[in-house]
């Protein structure tokens, strides 16, 4: 059974409130939804709310998922993205980095190297991260989201088009502009 069919079968089980199937899907998708949401809003509180709401929607509305239209990953990213956009609209702009950011880095990290043992290296890592985060946050909303989905989440342009309701040409244009803007700010 290929991966997509297997996921569709799990979603079907979730629609009849099978907690084991739901946990399996959380194990597979929660970390990537968390990473995407955090990079989009740069707030641990909002990330937690959005991730929780995304998976509660899966739990309560799994029967609305149509595997013929999109992969489960695409569907979940679309839900998370729309929730983030709703929050953006409500709060206008969110702070680029949370106040407790430095403390969190030393707990555990997703794709970091394990060299944050000394205060010096932790500070250096924090500084670099802050610079990149600032540059990403400075991008227009669509460019940022398309770049995150392509570069960090590994989606194809077609999948990004499905998430954003955009043509592949529009996705490519946003992607190229995002990288050009980042090059100007970071290099």
């Amino acid at each position: 059974m290929d991966r997509q069919k297997e996921e569709a079968a799990l979603v079907k089980r979730v629609s009849s409130h099978d907690a084991d199937a739901f946990n399996e899907l959380m194990l597979r998708f929660l970390p990537m939804i968390e990473r995407y949401t955090f990079r989009l809003c740069r707030s641990t509180e909002i990330t937690e709310d959005v991730v929780q709401e995304t998976f509660l929607r899966l739990w309560q509305g799994a029967d609305r998922y149509d595997p013929a239209k999109a992969t489960l990953s695409t569907w979940l990213h679309r839900i998370a993205h729309n929730l983030c956009m709703d929050l953006f609209r409500k709060h206008q702009r969110l702070s680029p980095l949370p106040d407790d950011w430095e403390g969190e880095l030393s707990d555990s990290t997703v794709n970091g190297t394990d060299n944050a043992n000394t205060p010096q290296s932790a500070f250096e890592q924090h500084r670099k991260t802050a610079q990149v985060a600032e540059a990403l946050d400075a991008l227009p909303e669509r460019q940022r989201s398309v770049l995150l989905l392509s570069y960090f989440q590994g989606f194809s342009n077609q999948e990004i088009g499905t998430i954003h309701d955009l043509s592949i040409a529009a996705v490519e244009s946003l992607l190229a502009r995002a990288r050009r803007n980042l090059t100007k700010r970071l290099l």
Binding site: P31, E34, R35, F38, R39, T44, E104, L105, D107, S108, T109, V110, N111, G112, Q125, K128, T129, Q131, V132, A133, A135, L136, Y151, F152, L182, L186, L187
Partner: peptide, 9 residues
């Protein structure tokens, strides 16, 4: 540079 964007887990 982009790979330096380390985020909490």
């Amino acid at each position: 540079r982009l790979s330096e964007d380390v985020i909490p887990n």
